[in-house]
Design a protein around this nucleic acid. Structure first.
Lengths: 182, 182
DNA sequence: GTCTATAATTTGATAGAC
DNA sequence: GTCTATCAAATTATAGAC
């Protein structure tokens, strides 16, 4: 929590941490207020409803992820960047926000549903912007992103950061030399 | 809801449906009572706490899954059976219970944490009991189960059953002839 | 922008009658 | 086993003072 951060961002930071650990129904406005050091009515001033908050949270998460991923020049670099993104989550034992919310998609306000879907779509679209992805990636974008989300999900379920590494090991070894795709 | 079903099983059925759609915090004892046609105090008679209920739910889910999977004689049959299990969930747009609960593992009562972890472990152990799995499966068990969970998770997130098929397409085509593993 | 106060509802859980 | 009745706490959200 940097000192030059707005209250608004501090609320989003608190919400992101709690949502990634406990899901949409796993945190309350009072939780966030306590985290930030204000009252819950003040949280409502910044975000009228919980749906508004979660929607903006998901949008910020997508924008930041794409910033982190950048514009790789080749498929190997793209795979390394994507691996690093999910590995950081596994190491910290925090689910990807997209999976944390999307798993209960049908129970979410529609704008939150759409932004969660938008995140996964954005990751796959990002892979398809990499020059030579069709022949250079070891698996198609949909399969790769599914594998990363699933490996992270089971790593959280097992409460074991190393499970992630075991699950994606075939990708990593392939990055060195060989191809998975037939 | 078969007529020869015990109230206890009917409660578990209702809980399973709701937990797979909305997660651990996405249903209440009153929801289940209404689904079954009794009062919430009666649900507490069968399951004293919500943790008790979710733990038993997860155990039943694991036992049933292993019954459905059976004892395949070769890796190709095993992959077909596992695909069918996850495909059914994707078609019905219901998350795997293990993922639905495990995604918020840190926020669950410990017995529920352990049974969710136990389910994913059971699937991988089941694959490793199949004769010839080491050379016959297109990917290692940890990678395969991660891919299935992730493809299902993103299929739910996208609210699109066909995403699952796209994500696992490399596996299916490989079942016909080739190998993914280098 | 933040507060106090509060409304209206829901939640997990228990006591005790039948 | 199921019910009525109830509790204490938590939840999302709003009104209005400062």
């Amino acid at each position: 929590m940097p000192q030059n951060e707005t209250i608004r961002d501090a609320i989003l930071d608190a919400a992101e941490g709690r949502a990634r650990v406990a899901g949409y129904n796993g945190f309350s406005f009072r939780d966030l207020a306590n985290d930030v050091g204000i009252k819950s009515a003040s949280v409502h001033y910044h975000f009228p409803t919980k749906g508004d908050l979660a929607h903006e949270l998901m949008e910020r998460y997508r924008i930041r992820a794409l910033e982190t991923l950048g514009s790789p020049e080749d498929p190997d670099e793209a795979l390394r960047k994507l691996t690093a993104l999910f590995r950081a989550a596994a190491t910290g034992q925090e689910m990807c926000l997209c999976g944390a919310l999307g798993v209960s998609s049908a129970a979410l306000p529609e704008p939150v549903q759409l932004s969660a879907k938008g995140f996964s779509h954005a990751l796959m679209a990002w892979l398809k912007e990499v020059p030579g992805w069709e022949k250079g990636l070891p698996l198609p974008p949909e399969t790769l992103v599914s594998l990363f989300e699933g490996a992270l999900l089971l790593s959280i379920t097992a409460r074991d950061p190393t499970f992630f590494e075991v699950a994606i090991a075939p990708l990593v070894s392939v990055t060195d030399s060989r191809r998975l795709r037939p």
